[in-house]
């Protein structure tokens, strides 16, 4: 789940106040293209590959990576979405977004899955995503692409493809959108 929705959803009800722009829209676009090429390089092509965006922030990003792959290699890669709310270990600590629905209409057995998320933080979302993926079949391998790795891992999980490594304080917030990446704070009213 995107940090933005998670933190700004009632009852926390904070407001994101941006402090600095870390990546411009062009930076994000270039990083997306680079990630696409790295994905193709690592997997020696795009056969048996699917992209799965994590709800909600990873979903548009997964589509952009797929577009970049199609532009570069002329091959369409299927894009799914995954909502991990029901797999979290901190269920009950976070609000569930009813609009975020899982859409993985394939058996993943034998496929290579690239999970895509906007911000990589504690690793708990990805842990939940790995459990969720297992219910859709036994993927041949699962890789992780993120736009921003902001550190503060709580689990032994690392990304395979990173847009930008961004050192942050724990209480800061990173917001990824079409217009770029902002670093700021959540101000609770």
């Amino acid at each position: 789940m995107a940090e933005r929705e998670r933190l700004l959803t009632p009852p926390l009800g904070g407001v994101f106040v941006a402090r600095a722009q870390v990546m411009t829209a062009e930076d994000v676009s270039r990083a997306t293209t680079r990630i696409a090429h790295e994905v193709a390089e690592r997997n020696h092509g795009l056969d048996d590959l699917v992209l799965v965006g994590l709800q909600t922030g990873g979903v548009p990003l997964a589509r952009r990576v797929a577009d970049a792959l199609e532009t570069a290699y002329g091959q369409a890669v299927p894009v799914g979405s995954l909502d991990v709310a029901f797999y979290r270990d901190d269920i009950g600590l976070r609000p569930v977004l009813p609009e975020a629905v899982t859409n993985i209409p394939w058996d993943l057995t034998g496929l290579t899955v690239v999970l895509v998320d906007d911000v990589f933080f504690t690793g708990r979302t990805v842990r939940a995503a790995l459990n969720a993926l297992a219910d859709h079949g036994r993927a041949r391998s699962v890789q992780l692409a993120v736009m921003v790795d902001r550190g503060h891992r709580e689990l032994p999980i690392r990304p395979d493809f990173v847009g930008k490594n961004l050192p942050t304080r724990r209480d800061e917030m990173v917001d990824v959108s079409a217009s770029g990446v902002m670093l700021g704070d959540v101000v609770v009213k």
Partner: peptide, 22 residues
């Protein structure tokens, strides 16, 4: 809210393994 949340669970119910650890 319940109706929208149910959308997610309809999706879960259509899976090969219709179970989540929630």
């Amino acid at each position: 809210e319940v109706l929208r949340l149910a959308d997610s669970f309809v999706e879960v119910s259509e899976r090969a393994i219709p179970r989540v650890p929630a």
